[in-house]
Design a protein around this nucleic acid. Structure first.
Lengths: 283, 283
DNA sequence: TCTTCATGGATCAAATACTAACCACATCAT
DNA sequence: ATGATGTGGTTAGTATTTGATCCATGAAGA
């Protein structure tokens, strides 16, 4: 193979099945992707993709190629982690991935102080719903709400994240005989399911909380979302419902990087300080 | 990692421990190798090599890197073989690696006729003493004189290659009471060892045969080297000594390439036709 | 000692790859 | 229909990478 780097382009293209999407992922233009893919096909002597109306789709040969690039990619990812882990400097980048709601409700202040204490660390916070892969170093540290943390990752459970029922003071005052239930429809994060048919469904914790604040009904929320919110009241008649756990995670290869350690420690303390509230044991 | 292709340069550099040597292997210039290695070091953030008087030598980090590139290289090699095996065209390149002496004594005419029969095949014959690795597709087909063909390779044994004792007619006429022995000192290929202390040692079959032709003494040679040579006489008093075998080898991934098949078949027939002579059963 | 050879650094013109901008075409919602 | 959006192809100008060359240095040979 003339140019090993073409495999990087090939993989992006195979995954996104579109020249432009691959270009965006690779932070380049579609002209470059097009040219490099064609160069690779010329080099190998066979077509890798077939032009279809659904997009570029792998040929049988392309599929075999994709399988074989697996070990190449794994090697490159391991190299990236090795290099990052090797880096003993306190100055430099760390990337944190965290659910946006968790950032606002729990981590905003602690991360602010983290950045003040370590101004030489370039912290990138990626608040996202879809979780990043620590293997690929899409993020260096991940705060994940889950019940089973992934293999390969290392880290610690920093809190439980139970659910409780909340509503506004208003709603509580003029409470109807039959409660109106507001529910979250958002599988990847938390799954507060009810037998009652919900009157309102939203795929965002923020939206559910907002609707509850407006007095529209009763809803289940993770305690970190609602405890300490002066507009929301917890219904004491409904017990805490154990749900997910909160984990801080990283990869063993980069665990010894001092910036990763600092951030992991800081996160641990941030969660420790707020654990009572997050777990609904406030007051 | 910004550019996966830098790993190709890195590996060449690590193996040759010299910028210029790596450049030669990569068919580029030392300026490029120097730049790319530095670019990789910048990208990874740590030094890969240390400048010593013996040349560039891997740092501890570079050594770990080298280990991790193993799977990358293996993947790329598998890809190369897949692409070559995939190529169903009769027109195109095949590379054959064969010991120079074996080429002259056994394969010269058959390969000449092979090229005449298939003018669209670009046959590259690499006559070399050090054997090529079929895994890396340093050669597509290899004729190897060995007693244990390598794993991973596929092929067939095409002949035994026993040794016999030869000398010139001249020497035989004026034979001294104590024979002068001419011996080969060449481990990688054939190892005709004797208890008698040799009067002459050479590391080339051609040279040994030449010295024998000049009447300098008696020597052991593989039959393919001496049988049919009108200047050399076999000593009937010394029995045939079983030694190595001759194998034609390729990689399973490229076995179905039509050019590889044709060449393998042609080689098999070439050896079949001359088997009696090669195995010392001539006349 | 002096010469020869090979090594790697530095420089700049030439080759190459890249980006930005355009286009034509398809899909989809209005 | 029709305009908006997203796709990939093409091309011209630019930016980057490369290769040829010169240089200084150190090791090996005469």
């Amino acid at each position: 193979m003339k140019n090993w780097d073409d495999l990087r382009i090939f993989r992006a293209m195979a995954k996104s099945r579109s020249i432009r999407a691959a270009a965006a992922e690779l932070k380049t233009t579609h002209a470059t992707v097009s040219r490099r893919v064609r160069a690779l096909e010329d080099d190998l002597g066979s077509a890798l993709f077939e032009r279809r109306k659904e997009g570029y789709v792998l040929t049988a040969f392309g599929q075999s190629m994709m399988d074989l690039t697996q070990s190449v990619t794994a090697g490159v990812e391991a190299i990236d982690r090795l290099a990052f882990g090797q880096d003993g400097s306190l100055a430099g980048p760390v990337r944190l991935s965290v659910l946006e709601d968790l950032y606002y409700k729990v981590l905003a202040n602690p991360l602010d102080s983290f950045m003040r204490s370590h101004p030489m660390i370039e912290l990138t916070i990626e608040t996202t719903s879809s979780f990043r892969d620590v293997n690929r170093r899409e993020a260096d540290v991940i705060v994940r709400i889950t019940s089973d943390p992934p293999e390969q990752a290392v880290g610690r459970k920093v809190a439980d994240s139970p659910l409780a029922a909340y509503c506004s003071r208003d709603y509580l005052r003029n409470r109807p005989v039959v409660d109106r239930w507001i529910a979250l429809d958002y599988p990847p994060t938390v799954s507060p399911l009810l037998n009652a048919r919900p009157a309102f469904l939203a795929n965002s914790l923020t939206v559910v909380a907002d609707v509850l604040r407006r007095g529209q009904g009763i809803g289940l929320l993770p305690c970190f979302m609602a405890e300490g919110d002066c507009d929301l009241v917890r219904l004491s008649e409904v017990d805490l419902i154990p749900d997910k756990e909160i984990w801080t995670l990283t990869h063993v290869d980069i665990l010894h990087n001092p910036r990763v350690r600092l951030l992991m420690d800081h996160l641990y303390h941030a969660f420790s300080n707020q654990r009572a509230r997050i777990e609904g044991r406030a007051e």
